[in-house]
Design a protein around this nucleic acid. Sequence first.
DNA 1: AATATACCATACCGGATGGTATTAAAAGAG
DNA 2: CTCTTTTAATACCATCCGGTATGGTATATT
Lengths: 224, 224
Amino acid sequence: MSTARRSAPRTTTPSPEAGVAATAPRVTKRGLERRDRILEVAAEMFLAHGYDGVSIDDIVKVVGGSKTNVYSHFGGKEGLFAAVVEEMCGDFLDGLQGMEATDPDPAAGLRAIGRALVAVLLEARHVAFQRLVIAESGRFPAMARAWFEAGPQRARAVIARCIAFHQQAGRLRPADPARMATRFHDMIVTNGLYQALLGTPPAAQEREAAIDEAVATLLHGHAA
Amino acid sequence: MSTARRSAPRTTTPSPEAGVAATAPRVTKRGLERRDRILEVAAEMFLAHGYDGVSIDDIVKVVGGSKTNVYSHFGGKEGLFAAVVEEMCGDFLDGLQGMEATDPDPAAGLRAIGRALVAVLLEARHVAFQRLVIAESGRFPAMARAWFEAGPQRARAVIARCIAFHQQAGRLRPADPARMATRFHDMIVTNGLYQALLGTPPAAQEREAAIDEAVATLLHGHAA
DNA sequence: AATATACCATACCGGATGGTATTAAAAGAG
DNA sequence: CTCTTTTAATACCATCCGGTATGGTATATT
């Protein structure tokens, strides 16, 4: 089912008398360190080789320690994978969150957000993450949903705030900022991400040009 | 490796004296039918369960016949997969190819192309195909490249032709039609495809709205 | 110090996988 | 009809996988 995310990871001892909460698992510093190290290694290996491309034994071989420990922390391979993705989801866009639109020129603000966003999304690590999430979106639908909210949707929210700011200042025509943000986000991100997924990420110059075009299109269109 | 795509599929008999082309494989009607049937079944199963989710035995169990035959036709699992994807690449956009822009209103032409394109790309079969290609783009880079050319690039070319037509009529400002087509294509396709990959494809009304917005943005922008 | 728990190392299990070998039946070519 | 090649059926191989069992060690709480 893959939905038992936080419920009962410690499956080794089924708790003698089920009824008295059965001794909460002991949390120690070493234990958390071990857990984090497993997550860390598993993340790198899943990113590099995909879900089916990595076995638990592969991970244990690198982490050290024993297989039992992986199972007691995460319940199994699916639990480990879910934990890995959950932790990575938020990491990429953290730097974007604080961006405020203060420049009176809408083009400048949109360009700044666009540059920051594209720079992060085209990092090799994020490209691998994107591939992983899409690849397993069928097997782990909840995970895919969570990624979408923590990734594209959050980026779009930042853009939407910028758009709303300029609308209130009368520099953009009134319209749903969230929907406008979606169009802008997609113009900026999609092609570069495709290229990167294919192994040929766009050069810096091409990235800039694409952002400039998207800004110009969003603001002025191409009608004669 | 995985580059010996068309070279030597018939690997069973290594040909006694390597020098006289060693009896070209006999091509019969039944043989081709068998081959096509394998491709057909393999395509459906790969789409449904992914590359690692389907074993050769699974495929043989459905197709009938024997494993040996799969290996003599395709050389192995990777060869079979490559053949499957290669054949599917072109199928989706065939209906789009002939679209000609004759309407004097640019918005009408772009909307028509957009509707046709989105309708195809959001079909469950294409969504599964997209997921499959992205998932295996790391393991099969050449396949991913071929998909990109036969898919997004071809769709963009159709859009670009429409744009160029209206530019020459003076209804759109001069600019690189291919690059404009990329922005428009990405605005139209990306979000809907994401939603579909997550299992919640957009309703018809939402699809229409997104296309209309993209057309309006491309033509007029949102500046006050 | 004693006890409970987390961790380590390793062996093991049932099952599945890609791929090969062998032998027999079917079908095309002359 | 005969000979050659393709297809079928099946058994087989080596390997790997997720997961469990076991038995012993480190660590933290009491």
